[in-house]
Computed example of a mutant assay.
Amino acid sequence: MAENAAKRLKTGDAPVTIGTHNGHFHADEALAVHMLRRHVPTYAGAALVRTRDPARLDACHTVVDVGGVYAPEANRFDHHQRTFATTFPGRQTKLSSAGLVYMHFGREIIARRLGREQQQQQQAGDDAEVDVLYRKIYENFVEALDAHDNGVSAYDPAAVSAAGLAKAFSDGGFTLGAMVGRLNPNWNDPRPADPAAAQAAEDARFEAASARIGEEFDRDLDYYTQSWLPARSIVAEAFAQRGRHDERGRIMVFEGQSVPWKDHLYTLEGEAGPGSEVVVYVLYPEGTAPDSKWRVQCVPVTKDSFQSRKPLPEAWRGFRDEKLDEISGIPGCVFVHAAGFIGGNKTFDGALAMAKKGLEL
């Protein structure tokens, strides 16, 4: 169903109108509107109507986050009705309007960004790369907005309480959802007395919010299509060659330059199956110049963890240059971070020696 969404649109008509609710706005409809206008050609230049008036909404070509109807064949994408329980394939988080629009138009958006519009329009079979990115962008960006709008916590509050866990510091509650929410007017901001002027002022704030969350979405879209995806084959090659410098395959080396490797490494290790040795250290040059210094980076326990599988030796941490040479017994050392998750050497051989010694200690 999702792949056929664009085929329902009336491409020969005048610019379409998108309807959403007025009043306090949220990140989900702000992103939904951006995705349609910015990435789906039929909605280029679409007018926006923010209202809760059923008659005005009925006149809109497409309605998001209001109206009490989820009917993709009629371009209705609301999630507030009591019976709504739709989730993204393979995920448990109930969708918001952002997730609904992404579920139905996401593959087209990604295919266009990859320059594969014709293939997507012709429905010429599955595209494995588009499918990988479709899931990746949902899980790493859109799902957080779905959860925020539906009041879903990242961790089970009861389990957190039972474990006696508490935040070590305040993050200010700054999330993608909060970023949009703070663009709403404050309770005591001046408000025009004229209803039409007041609505226009509110709509202007919504447009700014839609552009702001859209900018972040577009950054992710560009990163995953133009940087993350091309890195897959490079990481796969380095992973395949990991036995060259350690017979157990615990050291992975990027010869030319580093690429985004964490996601791909965890995927490759998972594909290698249980019992396979994991990579402990990743080596890469700081730049592309022949005399570039080299880094030794510890692989985190998980992608977002500050805990390393095996930090560099405690005795090295926080030292630099000649003092670190003396302590480690390895020439050319540059530094080891005080937390032990990364270090550097002037040469590849020196970085490799640091990694091998780190495995032993």
Rank of each mutant, 00 (worst) to 15 (best):
R320V: 03
G115Y: 11
D220H: 15
E269C: 10
Y70C: 02
A168P: 00
S161W: 01
G67I: 03
V279G: 12
A353V: 00
L221S: 00
P260W: 08
F141Y: 11
A158R: 12
L176K: 13
G115W: 10
C333S: 11
K303F: 09
I342Q: 14
A74P: 02
A85G: 10
E255Y: 00
A98L: 06
A147H: 04
F174I: 07
V278K: 15
I327A: 03
E269Y: 05
P190C: 12
E277D: 14
I234V: 13
G329E: 02
K10C: 10
T175F: 02
R76P: 07
A163G: 12
K94I: 14
R38E: 07
Q257A: 11
H26C: 06
V280P: 00
E73D: 15
C60H: 03
V301M: 11
A355S: 10
G68K: 06
H80N: 03
E326T: 13
G173R: 08
A196Y: 04
H104L: 01
P54Q: 00
E277T: 04
R191Q: 14
K94D: 02
F254W: 06
N4I: 06
F341N: 12
V130P: 08
L183G: 06
T302N: 03
F239H: 13
V299A: 15
G329H: 07
L268M: 10
A353T: 05
P72R: 10
S258P: 00
G67S: 05
L265C: 11
L36W: 05
P195I: 02
R205D: 06
P192G: 11
D65F: 03
R232G: 09
M35Y: 08
E215Q: 11
I251E: 05
R112A: 14
Y224A: 10
Q119T: 12
R320W: 00
P185C: 13
D246R: 07
D218H: 11
G343K: 13
P274S: 11
G350E: 03
G344Q: 11
V282E: 02
I342Y: 10
A339S: 15
R205Y: 01
R248P: 05
H34V: 01
S227E: 13
F341E: 11
D149R: 00
